[in-house]
């Protein structure tokens, strides 16, 4: 299992380094979205609730781009068949894809969050950073798990892009809610305040439950 996951991860990494399909697009998208928010809200700086809302909506839609692309190569080039022919545990595919998406999101955020601080955020980021990293990691796990499940579900349908958005957004509402509420006091007007533990706990619980569900039923999505 571990070897399989490592092999699949190496494949994903090689693929992304050669084609550069997902991550640059996601980064560009998030920065463009900040610009759009600047004009849409007609605000030079944002803080508190509004800042965390802008940040999370942007990251969520950027993640949607990554989710859309997640299984496209497998679907179009017959990678699913190759994987099914190999005598390995099928859940390895889920674990590898979820880790890949998680990694993509982290890389995107390394660029997108400083860009947010630079372009839109009113209060300084430095103080809020440790708490923000915890929230980002917890939310990334949730988005990665649900995103992988939804991407695998939608890849066989004809209206793939549409189905991903329609399925993933309602399922991700609790993640965004928890993340945005947990982030809001960090980006507060008068400097960072304490990280709210209950929202973070909700986020962690949701991650855990969906990881278990996805782990249990992912097998059925790969059979042919």
């Amino acid at each position: 299992m571990r070897g399989t996951v490592a092999a699949l991860l190496a494949k994903e990494l090689a693929l992304e380094l050669r084609t550069r399909e997902s991550v640059p697009a996601m980064v560009m998208f998030s920065i463009t979205t900040y610009v759009i928010f600047h004009f849409g809200l007609d605000a030079n700086t944002v803080d508190g609730d509004l800042a965390s809302g802008v940040l999370w909506v942007t990251l969520l839609f950027a993640a949607m781009l990554g989710v859309n692309r997640l299984f496209v190569a497998e679907h179009e080039q017959g990678g699913f068949d190759g994987f099914l022919l190999a005598p390995v545990d099928r859940t390895a595919m889920f674990v590898a894809k979820a880790i890949t998406l998680f990694g993509f999101l982290c890389v995107v955020e390394i660029v997108a969050v400083p860009a947010f601080a630079l372009l839109l955020l009113g209060p300084p980021l430095g103080q809020a950073l440790p708490g923000l990293i915890v929230v980002l990691l917890a939310a990334n796990i949730g988005i990665a798990v649900i995103g992988t499940l939804v991407a695998a579900l939608a890849i066989q349908t004809r209206a793939r892009d549409l189905m991903v958005a329609l399925l993933a957004l309602p399922l991700l509402v609790p993640v965004v809610l928890g993340a945005a509420r947990a982030t809001a006091p960090l980006l507060d007007h008068g400097g960072a305040q304490a990280l709210p533990g209950d929202w973070l706990a909700l986020l962690a619980l949701y991650d855990l439950l969906f990881a278990l569900i996805a782990y249990a039923i992912f097998d059925f999505l790969l059979e042919d």
Binding site: L149, L153, Q156, L167, L171, I213, I217, F220, L221, E223
Partner: peptide
């Protein structure tokens, strides 16, 4: 099969 996976989730 896919519908069942959706229904469970």
């Amino acid at each position: 099969r896919y519908a069942s996976v959706f229904a469970i989730t």
